[in-house]
């Protein structure tokens, strides 16, 4: 468990953020907070996304709704990119 989950307090210290920011991200559904033995944790798989959220918030002054919109659009962009690659591969059948 130690390697898979990182406690909220550790994250706050390392990234210089308030725990309320993480709560807000959790409330809007951008991250998932797990409670294990009365302590709150985040799965390490979410760290890369969390870092992105912190950067967008700190560096571009985006609020939570803005971050949510960005993440949705990036997910859509990834999906479209994947579809484009599949279609390009299919097109090669006819070249």
């Amino acid at each position: 468990m130690e390697t898979q989950f990182i406690s909220i307090s550790t994250i706050c210290v390392n990234y210089h953020i308030e725990s309320s920011f993480l709560m807000d991200l959790s409330n809007i559904g951008l991250i998932q907070i797990e409670i294990i033995e009365q302590e709150q944790y985040i799965h390490h798989d979410q760290i890369a996304d969390l870092e992105k959220m912190i950067r967008l918030h700190d560096e571009l002054d985006l609020n939570l709704e803005g971050i949510d919109v960005v993440f949705n659009l990036l997910a859509k962009q990834r999906e479209l990119q994947k579809e484009l690659t599949t279609l390009r591969n299919r097109l090669r059948l006819y070249e």
Binding site: K52, R55, L56, E59, L60, L74
Partner: peptide, 11 residues
């Protein structure tokens, strides 16, 4: 700020 929002690597 405008340029940073446009070209930020995360975006």
């Amino acid at each position: 700020r405008k340029m940073a929002r446009k070209y930020h690597p995360d975006l």
